[in-house]
Amino acid sequence: MLSIKNLHVSVGDKPILKGINLEIKAGEIHAIMGPNGSGKSTLSHVLSGKSGYTVTEGSVTYQGKDLIEMAPDIRAREGVFLAFQYPVEIPGVSNVYLLKAALNAIRKHHGEPEVDAMDFLTLVKEKVRLLEMDEKFLYRAVNEGFSGGEKKRNEILQMAILEPKLCILDETDSGLDIDALKIVSEGVNSLRSPERSFVMVTHYQRLLDYIKPDYVHVLAHGQIVKSGGPELALELEEKGYSWLEEQVAA
């Protein structure tokens, strides 16, 4: 699904990622953990195509194609989805308006006709129920005036409707209370499938109590310093990040 090889990324002259290697197969869930400033968000931004980052070395291959070469909207249509750490408010554009435009862009990309209005509404309403949201949300401007939890739920709602193949969750759990975290996690878990992979970037081990990863990677100073199974997360919970950071520094 996704193959990251020796990825070096700079912002301006400053190197942020310094040789990331990561293989993600279809159906797998990878958690990327690490302290603030370790490069976690940079990784998710680079994967989704945000501007302002320069890939100075290495490659990212998604389904056999060079991901870095693709414009962000093409990546999205090819099935890469970024759930934002800070979802953007778009005044004047309603959720349904955006969702329909997004879904039709994917369909057009795959040579399919535009979605039927009734089918679209049925799909959207089903997913709204899944995330225990009020249907009124659909007709409100994207994220405008939403609480933190509502914004994150809205991200997962979009994900559920657009059915991506590679889901990147950028600190989706940050700032969520336990009830919102449960709803978001259930939403994510319901999307798990053998064809869909997840990259969960998180600062907190708590998320992994609700979404069980296959692999856990620790990012520090722009490198993956340790990889392991879910048990690694528990070890981090106990010991924190400093022992790993010290290893790199040494």
């Binding site: 501007s51 414009a71 999205a76 953007v88 778009i90 435009a101």
Partner: peptide
């Protein structure tokens, strides 16, 4: 706002 443009692009919308 560039952030808003990118957000929409990440939702499959061409620039």
């Amino acid at each position: 706002d560039d952030k808003s443009v990118f957000y929409l692009q990440s939702r499959c919308i061409d620039e």
